[in-house]
């Protein structure tokens, strides 16, 4: 049995936040699905609201400050990612996008990710497919086939309805399959270790 690390990026802005609520549901289901497959999991949650100013500073200065660097390292070093955003103006929130904008473009290559989103009404539900999925395709993560969208009505009665619960479990199972199938030694790209020797550079490689 190995211990896998799950990073959870939640872009919710209010407190309590339905985005965080969905993120927590997805996380609990994924941890359970990993256990069912014989793996343990540690979970690290990155609440982007806490890094709102850090992210704006990173846009201006070009580097993450200490607090943001810790969050970035958490996400880059994780075996699997759960990324959940509120849908604003037909897409992921600007804060959510900013977090992925400030990462090195190769930092998350090959990492399994579960996509989740929340909004006031179900009219935004396909934003997971047409907005979130291309972002993570560009960053070359492996997104699980089931994206989980939750509108206000999905939380009716104070809990999840069966349809949402079903989607959560299916997506969590898909993520757990990808995470357990991944070699434990997968390392993020390292610009120093990956620098070609000067003889190769001279050949114009």
């Amino acid at each position: 049995m190995s211990t896998r690390t799950l990073a959870v990026v939640s872009g919710g802005l209010s407190n309590p936040s339905s985005t965080r609520l969905l993120a927590d549901r997805l996380t609990a289901a994924t941890v359970e699905a990993l256990r069912a497959r014989g793996d343990d999991a540690t979970v690290e949650v990155v609440e982007l609201r806490a890094h709102a100013r850090d992210l704006a500073d990173n846009l201006v200065t070009g580097f993450p400050n200490g607090s943001l660097r810790a969050a970035v390292d958490t996400v880059v070093g994780a075996d699997g990612l759960i990324a959940v955003t509120p849908i604003f103006s037909a897409s992921y929130s600007g804060l959510f996008k900013t977090f992925f904008d400030v990462l090195d473009k190769d930092a998350l290559v090959g990492k399994p990710v579960l996509l989740g989103a929340t909004a006031g009404t179900a009219r935004h539900s396909l934003a997971v497919e047409f907005a979130m999925r291309p972002l993570f395709a560009y960053l070359r993560l492996i997104a699980v086939p089931t994206g989980v969208f939750a509108a206000a009505e999905d939380w009716a009665g104070g809990g999840t309805d069966r349809a949402l619960a079903g989607r959560i479990d299916r997506a969590a199972g898909e993520l757990a399959d990808l995470v357990t199938g991944r070699p434990a030694t997968a390392r993020p790209s390292d610009p120093f270790a990956d620098t070609p020797s000067f003889e190769e550079l001279l050949k114009g490689s």
Binding site: T61, G62, F63, P191, F192, T195, P196, S197, F198, L201
Partner: peptide, 27 residues
């Protein structure tokens, strides 16, 4: 930010200068 340029400096035995202004010292 480019290790290739540090490699170039090292290959020729030239000097390497780090800007050391805008980014954290770890870099």
């Amino acid at each position: 930010r480019s290790p290739q340029i540090a490699e170039q400096a090292a290959y020729y035995g030239d000097g390497f200068f780090s800007n050391h202004i805008f980014w954290p010292k770890e870099h």
